[in-house]
Amino acid sequence: MVMVSFVEPGGAEQQIDVPEGWSLMQGAMSNGVEGIEGECGGSCACATCHCYVDDAWLEKLPAAAENELAMLENVVAERRPNSRLACQIKAGAALDGLRVELPEAQS
């Protein structure tokens, strides 16, 4: 299990044990995190699992692939340098303690 903190737009923080190999989106959705919609189910097709990755963690993540970068153009909240799609980040031991903030809106 990989501990990931999700910070909802109101500031509430939820720590979730995400099974290794699951995406952050699936970890959040299956634990009722409100700020992620994940409408497409994780196929990188909807941009409703937008998150801001804490700067300290950004460089530990594999870089976003082309399809993720293209889909990030569709997020409705502000896109920032640390914007990522939670369905494209897979939980692994190196990410234990990761903290992501969720935007005001996903759709």
Binding site: S23, Q26, M29, S30, G32, G38, E39, C40, G41, G42, S43, C44, A45, C46, C87
Partner: peptide
């Protein structure tokens, strides 16, 4: 029921969800 498997999930999640 967030995260349900009604459309499958991950890379092969249903194209037609919307």
């Amino acid at each position: 029921p967030k995260g349900h498997l009604g459309f499958g999930g991950s890379v092969h999640a249903c194209l037609g969800t919307t």
